[in-house]
């Protein structure tokens, strides 16, 4: 079976049950949009799906194998969290270059320049990231989506700090990815617009 499948997930944080026996699946060419109020466990769920944290009960399967034992999951996944994962002392180029090396993606420096260019960061490539605005930093972080060819994208609040153009730009990237047969799971505060294409919604409730 292809795609991602979650079965019977339970997550207990600070001795509060965030969700119990949660199951869903994500097939190639699908966008799963996760919705819920603050504290409902959206981030916790996304982190469990990436394998960063483990569920108290339940399991995530990627192409039929649990992600804990899967050899291919790390290669097929891009996760971008709340935090941009950019070291503030390094430049955008250096940050992306080292990130690509860590994830064993072969990219030439010229490719990184190109990606930064199409993402509207011309002239900002070589200065330490701490001098960029929050929105520009977010764009640098999102540039990873162009660098690594991975079918599974898990993005936590990717629109944070982006301007209107930026939001549209990212939504178009989403729909392109999904059309190519990619899988995308994301969450955001504002609803997705038509640019992002079709999507299924998963609602999480706040529980006491």
């Amino acid at each position: 079976m292809s795609g991602l499948r979650a079965s019977g997930l339970t997550c207990i944080k600070r001795d509060r049950v965030l969700f119990e026996a949660l199951s869903f699946s994500l097939k190639p060419g699908e966008l799963l949009y996760l919705r819920g109020p603050n504290g409902a466990g959206k981030t916790s769920l996304l982190r469990i799906v990436t394998g960063l944290s483990s569920a108290d009960e339940g399991e995530i399967y990627y192409q039929g194998t649990p992600i804990r034992t899967s050899n291919t999951y790390a290669k097929s996944l891009i996760y971008l969290g709340h935090k941009t994962a950019l070291n503030s002392a390094l430049s955008a180029i250096e940050n992306l270059h080292y990130w690509a090396a860590q994830h064993q993606v072969a990219v030439a420096t010229s490719d990184i320049y190109h990606v930064l260019e199409i993402n509207g960061l011309v002239g900002l490539e070589d200065i330490p990231v701490r001098f960029l605005s929050a929105g520009q930093q977010r764009r640098v972080a999102l540039s990873r989506l162009w660098l690594k060819k991975a079918p599974v994208w898990i993005l936590d609040e990717p629109f944070t700090a982006l301007d209107i153009d930026g939001v549209a730009w990212l939504e178009r990237k989403f729909s392109a990815h999904v059309k190519e047969g990619g899988m995308l799971m994301t969450t955001s505060h504002q609803p997705l617009s038509a640019l992002a294409g079709d999507h299924t919604t998963l609602d999480l409730e706040y529980r006491f």
Partner: peptide, 17 residues
Amino acid sequence: RDDFNDGSLEQYTLSGV
């Protein structure tokens, strides 16, 4: 500290290494 605060540690964890 820096890697934890800026999220680089998450990327390390997911790099498959």
